[in-house]
């Protein structure tokens, strides 16, 4: 609504002026509208916003951008991994399995990981139901069934946030020491972790290489941001008005997209992408050769501490 000065003037003088419309078709019904905030007697701040055309951008984001973004990221990641797989195949343990195992993640470590991981996957799935249900699921299962699913997804999404955050905190406490960036990470990054080196030459790495540290910090910061924005979405308008809520939602959703894509990559590496990797989280111990190739420095440390079996007598 525009309280154009001429309109007020016209009203004050009540005499036809140059701005006074003389015929009905000169009357302006449609006027430029910008955000309008006024006073309201109801004790509800957000209702004092009369018009928020900005909702348009959010609508655009929610109805189009978000789906393109998340869908795009996920598909792009899958495509990239697919291509990579075709090009590189599973990264083998260069020296083959030694058969001797080095303990890598204890029970608590694995509990933390899987709590986080499962929660995350559930949250991603339930979140994506909301994002993609309308174009993908409603045509398949119909409105009532989808509402049922959506309600269920929503509460699961809300409740599973608790174990997710719990797992996140545990991971943070357990692994933060080993994820402090160091010089070696730089080299690792420069060579892309030897990823492209079919010869299996891996740059030196401690317990976690730079890539894993990246995952770690992405999960920690990203997860924290998801949790923060998520909880604020859950108690709407407690700290911010409508504009703020829109921004929170955008952050939450964009991060969700990025994290989901990233985690798909992580899962790839942890499973078919790399021979022997899964054991670390599955059994809690890794093949010695895997350890030597991927985390040589860590392997040395473990050995020094007597946590790893002594090296076999060199076969040469």
């Amino acid at each position: 609504m525009l309280l154009a000065a001429p309109a007020v003037q016209a009203q004050l003088y009540q005499t036809p002026g140059p701005a006074t419309p003389a015929t009905k078709d000169q009357v302006q019904l449609y006027v430029p509208e910008d955000k309008e905030i006024g006073r309201i007697s109801l004790p509800d701040e957000k209702l004092s916003v009369l018009i928020q055309p900005q909702g348009r951008e959010w609508r655009e984001f929610r109805s189009h951008t978000l789906r393109l973004l998340v869908g795009g990221l996920v598909l792009a990641m899958l495509a990239a991994l697919g291509l990579f797989y075709l090009f590189r195949g599973t990264i083998r343990i260069h020296a083959g399995r030694s058969g001797r195992m080095v303990p890598r993640f204890g029970g608590l470590d694995r509990f933390a990981h899987w709590t986080t991981a499962v929660s995350f996957l559930v949250m991603a799935a339930t979140g994506l139901v909301l994002t993609f249900g309308r174009p993908l699921l409603i045509p398949l299962i119909g409105h009532p069934a989808f509402t049922g699913l959506a309600v269920w997804s929503k509460s699961v999404h809300n409740f599973v946030s608790v174990p997710f955050v719990f797992g996140l905190l545990l991971i943070l406490v357990l692994w933060v020491r080993d994820n402090i960036p160091e010089k070696a990470d730089w080299i690792w990054l420069r060579t892309l972790g030897g990823l492209l080196d079919k010869g299996g030459e891996h740059p030196e790495a401690g317990r976690f290489n730079a890539g894993q540290k990246g995952v770690f910090w992405s999960v920690v910061f990203g997860g924290a941001a998801m949790a923060l924005t998520g909880y604020l979405l859950m108690v709407p308008f407690t700290v911010t008005g409508i504009g703020g809520m829109q921004i929170l939602h955008v952050i939450h959703a964009v991060l969700a997209g990025l994290m989901i894509a990233a985690i798909i990559g992580h899962i790839y590496i942890g499973t078919i992408g790399m021979e022997g990797a899964f054991d670390a989280m599955g059994r809690g111990e890794v093949d010695e050769n895997w350890a030597i190739e991927h985390h040589h420095r860590w392997y040395e440390e473990q050995r020094r501490k007597g946590l790893a079996p002594p090296p076999p007598q060199a076969a040469e």
Partner: peptide, 17 residues
């Protein structure tokens, strides 16, 4: 529109645009 013409002022129909 009739009102606006009659009274000579009016600042548009709020929300219509």
């Amino acid at each position: 529109a009739e009102r606006v013409v009659r009274r000579g002022y009016g600042s548009g129909a709020t929300g219509w645009t």
